[in-house]
C-alpha cells in the first residue's frame, strides 16, 4: 500500500475539535450558498424542462466583466421585444460553447466565424441570424511590444519578422485571434514552430493578449480590431509600449447563430422576429444605443451564409475544421 505507511501523522490531540468545526463549516459551504448557486447551476440543467426560456450565450472572447455587462442587456432587450423570458448563460470556453449549442443547451449564441462554422457543421439547420456592420469585413491587428524592436511592416510578406519572436494568439478557436492570423502568417511563410520556444502562446482572450504583449511577456501578438480600439480609447493600452504593426485584409467574422427548432418551440415566425429585433436595433433608442455601443457597432445587418465559405476553407486547411 503506497500511501498508508506515509499517512501516519503524529499530532497532539487538542486541535481535534477545532478541526472538526472547521471541517463542518467547510462541508456546509456549498449548502449555505444557494442564492448565488441558483443563478449559475440550474440554468444549464435540462433542455426539455425549459421549453419557454430562450437561453443566449456568447463565446468568451473578452473580459468576463465586459460580457457580463453586455449580454444581460441583450437578454432584457430580446425579452421585451419577443415577449419570452430570456436568460444569459455565461460559458467559459469556446469549445464548450460549440458543444453546448450542439446539445441544444443554448438557443442563440454569439459565435466567431470559426466557432459558428463548427457549430453549424455539428448542428445542421442552425440559422445565421445577423452580424454587425463591422463583421462583414473584419480585421485583425498584429501588435508588438515597442521594446522588442519590431517595426510596423509594409505588407504581408513582412510578417516574417515575427520568426523567432515570442508570439501569442488569443483563444485556440478564435477566428480573429488565431484562425485568420495563422492563415496570413502561413501565406507569409511563417509556421507555428518558427516562433520562439517552438510554439505560439494562447492567451485565451484578446484583452489578455494586449496585456501580455504590453507587459513584455510576449513580444508580439494578434488581436481583433474591435477590442484593440476599445482598449485604446479606454486608456488601458499604452501606445508607448504596444503598437500595431500590420492590419490584415478583411474577412467575415462574428454572428448570431440560432437553433433550427426555435419556431417549433416558441411559435411560427419566431426566428424571423428574432432576426428583425437585431436588425432594428437603433442608436436613437437610448437602451439599444447602449447595446450597440458595447458591441462596438453602429447597427446589425443580415449575414449571408456564403461569406463563411472561405472561413470554412481556411479552417480545413489549418485543421481546425474536420
Amino acid at each position: 500500500m503506497f500511501s498508508l505507511p506515509l499517512l501516519r501523522p503524529r499530532l497532539p490531540r487538542p486541535g481535534f475539535r477545532l478541526a472538526l468545526l472547521a471541517g463542518l463549516a467547510l462541508a456546509l459551504t456549498p449548502a449555505a450558498l444557494p442564492p448565488q448557486l441558483q443563478q449559475v447551476a440550474p440554468q444549464l440543467a435540462g433542455a426539455q424542462a425549459q421549453q419557454k426560456l430562450l437561453r443566449i450565450s456568447a463565446i468568451p472572447d473578452q473580459k468576463p466583466e465586459t460580457l457580463n455587462r453586455l449580454y444581460p442587456l441583450v437578454a432584457s432587450e430580446l425579452s421585451r421585444s419577443l415577449g419570452v423570458p430570456v436568460k444569459y448563460v455565461p460559458v467559459t470556453d469556446y469549445t464548450a460553447a460549440v458543444s453546448a449549442f450542439r446539445r441544444g443547451d443554448l438557443d442563440l449564441v454569439w459565435f466567431g466565424a470559426l466557432t459558428g462554422v463548427q457549430a453549424r457543421l455539428q448542428k445542421p439547420g442552425a440559422k445565421v441570424i445577423a452580424q454587425r456592420d463591422i463583421d462583414a469585413s473584419f480585421q485583425s491587428f498584429f501588435i508588438a511590444n515597442t521594446a522588442s524592436g519590431i517595426k510596423p511592416i509594409a505588407n504581408q510578406k513582412g510578417l516574417s519578422v515575427l520568426k523567432g519572436k515570442r508570439f501569442t494568439f488569443g483563444s485556440e478557436s478564435s477566428t480573429s485571434g488565431r484562425l485568420m492570423p495563422q492563415y496570413f502568417l502561413g501565406q507569409a511563410g511563417v509556421r507555428l514552430s518558427d516562433f520562439a520556444g517552438g510554439a505560439p502562446g494562447f492567451s485565451s482572450s484578446h484583452d489578455a493578449t494586449i496585456a501580455l504583449v504590453q507587459s513584455g511577456a510576449y513580444q508580439a501578438g494578434v488581436v481583433n480590431e474591435e477590442v484593440w480600439q476599445s482598449n485604446l480609447s479606454s486608456g488601458k493600452t499604452d501606445p508607448k509600449k504596444v503598437i500595431v504593426i500590420w492590419r490584415t485584409p478583411g474577412y467575415a467574422n462574428y454572428h448570431w447563430l440560432a437553433q433550427p427548432n426555435l419556431d417549433q418551440r416558441f411559435g411560427k415566425g419566431f426566428t424571423t422576429r428574432l432576426q428583425s429585433t437585431f436588425l432594428n436595433l437603433r442608436a436613437s433608442n437610448p437602451k439599444q444605443a447602449q447595446i450597440l455601443d458595447l458591441f462596438g457597432a453602429k447597427r446589425f445587418i443580415p449575414a449571408p451564409v456564403s461569406q463563411y465559405d472561405s472561413i470554412e476553407k481556411v479552417g480545413r486547411e489549418i485543421g481546425k475544421i474536420r
Binding site: G15, F16, A19, L26
Partner: peptide, 9 residues
C-alpha cells in the same frame, strides 16, 4: 481546514 479535519478524524 479540510486537511486538518481529515488528519484529526
Amino acid at each position: 481546514a479540510l486537511e486538518a479535519l481529515l488528519r484529526a478524524l
